[in-house]
């Protein structure tokens, strides 16, 4: 995913579990959401953490998730939601909107 994704684009967070420093929370991997903001391009924490310069910089998005998508056992209200900043290399197209 290179060009900035449009607002509202349905995405899925990669269900990947590599070792090392990662800023994509475990609980959101594999979950479907939609883009609510493109925040700009930022150094990649996965290389910055090891003394590298973080290039290539990664587009960073705020992704909106329905709580019911993230937690099958969510006890709350249907509209409750979560928004998480996720770098583009953790996002893949989701096909259908959640």
């Amino acid at each position: 995913m290179s060009a900035p994704l449009a607002l509202g684009t349905a995405v899925r967070v990669r269900a990947a579990y590599p070792p090392g420093h990662i800023r994509t929370p475990f609980y959101v991997r594999g979950k479907r959401g939609r883009i609510v903001q493109y925040c700009g391009d930022f150094g990649n924490p996965e290389t910055l953490a090891y003394g590298h310069d973080g290039t290539p910089r990664q587009p960073l998005y705020r992704v909106h998730f329905a709580q019911s998508e993230v937690w099958p056992d969510y006890r709350g209200v249907g509209r409750d939601s979560l928004e998480v900043e996720i770098y583009s290399h953790w996002l893949e197209p989701a096909g259908d909107a959640p």
Binding site: R62, D80, E83
Partner: peptide, 15 residues
């Protein structure tokens, strides 16, 4: 109230 959406922001990156 139940008719208000609770929206949680997980501050994971640069914001």
């Amino acid at each position: 109230p139940d008719d208000v959406e609770v929206r949680v922001h997980d501050s994971t990156a640069d914001l």
